[in-house]
Design a binder for these strands. Structure first.
Lengths: 217, 217
DNA sequence: GACTCTCTAGAGTATATACTCTAATAATAT
DNA sequence: ATATTATTAGAGTATATACTCTAGAGAGTC
């Protein structure tokens, strides 16, 4: 593998493990057994590394959120989107953690992330539209749709942070992929009242698969 | 005012303005025109300052979330809670920003914050119970209540972060108190389907007062 | 006036961090 | 083989940051 790619991979791994704030360029170099000079030959600075990782993340999410416009959506579609999005969230979980600081220090990233957010929100709305057409969710007032999508977005992107703060110990990376998936439980809770009555039972059923076991300890 | 209190006040102000990560103890001292030595005479370290500020925040929120148990709750109660909580959020807005890092570096704070979260979640559930009794919201399955409360909590505590990232410019502290209050719009959106039909119109009405003007730009 | 206790100044320190510079080595082209 | 280019090592630097240490000023007490 090219050194450049190794750097990106190691950075992502370390960021996810320890948080961007706790990982220095020297750490990354040391982790790979290369010199700082070598790292800076491939990247102008730390922000550049983060930005490239963001681009990968963005690409992945865009791929996950491709929505067929030639057919309505069903329950399996919805679950597929949820699983995919939380998968992406897991792979790049460092990102939403130090987000504000990252955006503060890289204008390019800030602009791109803003557009990214808006695209995601649009996709969520589109998914709801598809599900409405598919008879899974009830038709909602136009006026509510944007705010609903935003709430879904808030729950999804901040579930990880909540888990981390709710955990008793901070033993490195104590949040597991499974726990993250419990965010799906929260999103399904959110959607419950909007479902067509026929689907309520089925979704409640699916939802139990994601039930957190530790909540409220 | 005592130097000790001045330090707490100035720290809170600077943290809110620039983010905890961007404010050093030397900055705080310089801002007050006192020496670093003086600052460290009053506080053992930066974590201690943060911890004391957290205690104030906690006290404020606890005060706001006192819930009368001798009567059911009405719509005005609900709006009062929302307004209060978002007020507290505004006054200590730095806190939820670098939360994960703060908790990683102060075990005492982590434990306290965890308990704080659980108390808040319990309060939210209690408020829902009161509103149910008051005939404002429909009775929900026991099983849903915890997850609903958690979603409300997620939206409330992360609304600020969303605003910051959604903003185009990072011109220092460009998020206003009014914009923060638009989080109430989101929470009301969340609650909408659970309301008793009689209250729907009124809440929709109230909700328009908090409508964001910039969303989706 | 001597003594004590609280508070403050300010220079200073150890460590960390992002990043640079030079020289050398490996790879490739001619 | 030689020239050129891409890659790497590794020592080094400027700056920042959390925090320490010593000395001394004020205020109150005996």
């Amino acid at each position: 593998m090219k050194t450049r790619d190794k750097i990106l991979l190691a950075s992502l791994e370390l960021f996810n493990d320890k948080g961007e704030r706790n990982v220095t360029t020297n750490h990354i170099a040391a982790h790979l057994g290369i010199s700082p000079g070598n790292l800076y030959y491939h990247f102008r600075n730390k922000s550049d590394i983060i930005y490239e990782i963001f681009l990968e993340y963005e690409k992945l999410v865009n791929y996950y959120l491709e929505i067929p416009d030639d057919r309505p959506l069903g329950l399996p579609d919805m679950m597929f989107y949820l699983e995919s999005v939380f998968d992406g969230l897991w792979s790049y979980r460092f990102f939403h953690r130090d987000l504000e600081f990252l955006l503060d220090n890289d204008e390019r990233l800030r602009d791109d992330y803003r557009k990214f957010t808006n695209r995601c929100l649009a996709s969520i709305k589109q998914i709801f539209a598809g599900l409405t057409e598919g008879g899974v969710v009830q038709r909602q007032a136009e006026e509510l749709q944007g705010a609903m999508a935003l709430n879904v977005w808030l729950v999804i992107t901040n579930w990880m942070a909540f888990l981390k703060t709710a955990h008793a110990s901070h033993e490195s990376d104590s949040v597991s992929r499974d726990e993250l998936k419990q965010g799906i439980f929260q999103v399904l809770t959110l959607e419950m009242p909007y479902l067509m009555p026929d689907y309520r039972e089925e979704v409640l059923q699916i939802r139990t698969r994601y039930r957190p076991d530790l909540l409220g300890d």
